[in-house]
């Protein structure tokens, strides 16, 4: 009896969670996939109609804009956050006196919700209220910084706010990575008279590859899921110039009563996430087998 219990209690305890995940994650992914092949409007319908929703999706210029924006936003957000984060981490790693304080300062934006970040940056970047008005008020009448209301540049303001929020977090990740590098190796290199930049580029950074991967995964899923930042900062505007796939899906599902279209865009978003996560999982799992 005791043996039986010992063997089965873990399974029994895990079963509810497992069932919940099976239903609420994979079950609903399956449901969304099903609905994306129907002509569902206000309410879900279940007669399969083929790939009509996907045809419509790819013919929609708004979806094109959303995917382009995701590409621009995702790339810049990830690259700039990583570069800034790494730079800050390396600077903080120089055994400076106020490290604890500075670390908190840079990490703090992460404590804010994206809605707050978005609203604050909306005011800062608003040409009539924020930066532009202030600098013009100082007497530089020709100063112009209207990216927020310029459809060609508005997406870059989203990048700015996103980077401001996340680079501190990336810094913390990298700082932990820097500290985990074996001190003996660094000392050996220093004894050999290797200059510090070379130590970083040839020894420390290469040994932090797993941290880069984690940072990349965390940032890329933040980018793909980005919704609240855009809603608060630009509301998707001007026009739909800063739409992202998530805001597109929201508009279709909740404002336009077009659930089929929303489901198809959700499936494409999921595939984009898979395209990034699957190679990661693959490399992780393989590494363990080796």
């Amino acid at each position: 009896m005791t043996q039986w219990l010992e063997r089965h209690v873990p399974k029994v305890v895990l079963a509810p969670t497992f069932a919940a995940i099976l239903l609420f994650v994979y079950g609903f992914i399956g449901w969304t996939a099903w609905v994306s092949f129907t002509r569902s409007k206000l309410m879900p319908r279940y007669e399969i109609e083929g790939v009509i929703q996907y045809t419509k999706l790819f013919a929609s210029p708004r979806w094109d804009t959303a995917m382009n924006n995701l590409f621009i936003f995702g790339t810049l957000f990830i690259v700039i956050s990583m570069i800034l984060g790494l730079a800050l981490a390396i600077l903080l790693d120089q055994k400076i006196r106020t490290e604890g304080f500075l670390r908190t300062v840079y990490l703090y934006p992460m404590a804010l919700s994206m809605i707050v970040t978005g609203t604050a940056w909306k005011w800062i970047l608003n040409p009539g209220l924020g930066l532009q008005a202030t600098v013009q008020g100082w007497g530089f009448e020709n100063f112009q910084f209207d990216w927020l209301v310029n459809p060609d540049y508005a997406i870059y303001t989203v990048v700015m706010a996103g980077v401001w929020q996340s680079s501190g977090f990336v810094m913390a990740l990298f700082l932990a990575g820097l500290r985990s590098v074996d001190g003996e190796i660094i000392k050996a290199a220093q004894v050999d008279g290797i200059p510090t930049p070379r130590i970083y580029s040839a020894i420390i950074i290469p040994s932090m590859a797993p941290i880069f991967l984690s940072a990349f995964i965390v940032l890329s899923h933040l980018a793909i899921k980005s919704f609240d930042l855009v809603i608060a900062l630009t509301g998707g505007g001007p026009g739909y110039a800063t739409d992202l796939p998530a805001t597109y899906m929201y508009a279709m599902a909740f404002s336009r009563g077009d659930i089929g279209q929303a489901a198809s865009s959700a499936m494409i978003m999921m595939m984009v996430v898979f395209a990034i996560v699957v190679p990661y999982l693959y490399s992780e799992l393989r590494a363990k087998h080796d």
Binding site: P61, R62, P151, G237, P238, G239, Y240, A241
Partner: peptide, 9 residues
């Protein structure tokens, strides 16, 4: 979508 895209570009 078209109206707002036209107006803002």
């Amino acid at each position: 979508d078209v109206v707002t895209a036209h107006f803002n570009s």
